[in-house]
């Protein structure tokens, strides 16, 4: 069995998750506290990947990343990056695709914190980052865990977007979900089973972890 698609999947999911943590926390914090009129539009944009067919997202990203597009040209000329059919392109697409899975839990976690926590910290002359690091994030650990695990798992389960902008280049863009598709197409059911079972087990284990930890199960029986 060729392990490289699985390794690639885990690599993609890990990098995507780390990028998402950094990107989503400021967005979620802003959405949790702002009263600006633009808020519903921003929330809609963040949530779009939930309902948009992955192929549509992939199609537009493919157009945007193509060396003929303005964005593609800027990326290629200034940064020497060609995102279409590359691993970096997959990371960017996955970040957009899994954004709601990270932003939503953090946003709802932050909104459920009593206002007085934030205000106490403000009155104490603490900075944005100090408050975030010492007060807000430590008090929404379950939400953070949910966000991290769901975006990781969702990236593992990605198929349409990857297929559109990554194709199926071995070791670069052929992730496990694509490998399953290829093996089935080639009537190679044995290999398809191997990938599928591993993905199934991974998805189950990851979700079970969230429910056990957030349900207090582990705390209760781990002493």
């Amino acid at each position: 069995m060729d392990w490289s698609p699985l390794v690639l999947t885990l690599k993609l999911a890990s990098i995507t998750t780390v990028v998402l943590i950094v990107v989503s926390i400021p967005i979620a914090k802003w959405l949790a506290y702002t009263n600006i009129r633009l808020k519903p539009f921003v929330e809609t944009l963040v949530s779009m990947p939930l309902v948009l067919p992955p192929t549509v997202l992939g199609f537009y990203l493919l157009l945007a990343f193509s060396p003929d597009s303005p964005l593609g040209q800027v990326l290629e000329n200034w940064f020497g990056l060609r995102l279409a059919f590359s691993f970096q392109g997959l990371v960017i697409a996955s970040v957009i695709y899994s954004l709601p899975f990270m932003v939503h839990p953090i946003q709802s976690g932050l909104s459920s914190l009593p206002k007085s926590l934030l205000e106490s910290s403000r009155v104490m002359d603490k900075s944005y980052f100090s408050t975030l690091l010492h007060v807000e994030l430590p008090n929404i650990k379950p939400s953070l865990l949910t966000g991290i695990v769901l975006s990781f798992a969702h990236t593992v389960g990605e198929f349409g977007v990857v297929l559109m902008i990554g194709g199926s280049i071995p070791d670069r863009t052929r992730v496990a979900s694509i490998a399953v598709y290829n093996e089935v197409e080639a009537l190679n059911y044995h290999a398809a089973h191997q990938y599928s079972l591993l993905l199934l087990a991974l998805a189950f284990a990851v979700l079970l972890t969230v429910y056990l930890v957030n349900g207090g199960f582990i705390k209760k029986f781990w002493r």
């Binding site: 007085s116 106490s120 009155v123 008090n139």
Partner: peptide, 13 residues
């Protein structure tokens, strides 16, 4: 200044 909030606003963590 210092302020004591009605719900105290103590940091639970």
């Amino acid at each position: 200044i210092a302020m004591v909030f009605q719900d105290y606003g103590l940091f639970p963590n």
